[in-house]
Design a protein around this nucleic acid. Structure first.
Lengths: 216, 216
DNA sequence: CCAAAAGTGTTAGGAGTACACCCATGG
DNA sequence: CCATGGGTGTACTCCTAACACTTTTGG
């Protein structure tokens, strides 16, 4: 067998909700190839860390957040996808609640910004394809899992939850039907607090599963 | 950055239906580590082939079949998963119809055999975990896609289709409800032939989508 | 008092599920 | 004629989808 020479990276599609839009974190590349273009945060996997460890390390470096939802997406390994040579990337996606999505002063990234997924700039490598894949995945998962809650703060209103669904699925939902379904799932509990909203105050809820997410 | 040294393999969960059971192809390892134990077919990715090309090459080497369903499953990259060093594997699964699942005289595999997924021998590496993952994936996909047809010959009876579903989902289905649902999907077309079955002959069907699978 | 988002029920149609008997053939 | 798998219809439940008005607040 001829000697194999493949390098392995992880790239992360970091998603959040902000301003009624689904946004993805992109970093501007400071070096060739694709210098000056935006790309997904990511980097080479170290010899002594698992794929998920590598993904969490990159995530922490970019956003400072540790305890967020992270899931492997797909591996992209076409021969010509990186002009520098043979590079396989294992893509992950992460969901960051809005109260924990400040940008960290980048340790290695020149410039990082949130972009609405509907208005992406030209992207380096095959990263556009990776983002599209991530959005498709979260759309599907939204229908049969509770990943949606990973994009909300600990306390939220039902309208916020509904807007989240509408933004990700890119379609409008009926308010009464939506609330009935959420209620039937038994996954949210009303708090004693209300949220002052400018007009009529809204009931605050929390996700009913065991308190897993950390310091709100 | 310290020099990265990760080797990349593909491993394939090759599934077929035989004798009313879901079976997976395993090869007996001829060399350490895990010498003499069964493992998934697989091997190192060449520098000049994509991941899927590598998977199809391995698939062809093991079974001689070219034109079957193949889908990337997941990438397994824990640090200690291969005692020889750092090896990342990109797992695929393939679905082989029963009329095209003969074993090819292995070019590089010592011994290959089909095992019912319910009676697996001890497996090398983390391959048991990979198989479990593949079964979970196909169970889910069976519910909302047409992958099931990939495990049938071109001509099949509705009873064969139902048994396929029952074996994979590991639960019994109601014959009338099953047929109604299949009919409602409009995905099968009756042929003019019947299948002699020992008792009352059964209507043969074919999958209604554009003739994609090749030489029956 | 007006604008704006919060909140709340009913009805109709479709999908899923439970359930039992006759049919065609080979031996 | 009998054993075996092939083939068929109906009723009930539940989920989904469509649809409009009242409430509470800030300005």
């Amino acid at each position: 067998m001829s000697k194999q020479d493949i390098r392995v990276t992880v790239d992360i599609v970091i998603l959040t909700i902000s301003g009624e839009q689904l946004k993805v974190l992109l970093v501007k590349r400071g070096a060739p190839p694709f210098q000056g273009q935006y790309a997904l945060p990511g980097g080479f996997v170290h010899n002594d860390e698992s794929l998920e460890d590598a993904a969490r390390r990159e995530l922490s470096e970019e956003t400072g957040t540790e305890d967020v939802y992270l899931e492997q997406l797909y591996s992209f390994g076409d021969v010509g996808r990186d002009p520098r040579g043979r590079v396989l990337t294992v893509a992950y996606y992460a969901l960051v609640p809005p109260d924990r999505s400040p940008l960290k002063a980048g340790t290695d990234a020149a410039e990082a910004n949130w972009f609405p997924v509907t208005k992406l700039p030209p992207l380096a490598f095959d990263h556009r394809q990776i983002i599209d894949y991530a959005i498709e995945r979260i759309r599907n998962k939204l229908e049969y899992t509770t990943v949606g809650f990973e994009l909300l703060p600990q306390k939220f209103t039902l309208s916020e939850l509904q807007h989240l669904y509408e933004v990700i699925l890119d379609k409008e939902l009926d308010k009464r039907n939506f609330r009935r379904k959420i209620d039937a799932l038994g996954l949210v509990k009303p708090l004693k607090e209300m949220q002052a909203t400018g007009r009529r105050p809204a009931q605050l809820f929390r996700f009913a599963k065991s308190e897993k997410r950390g310091q709100g």
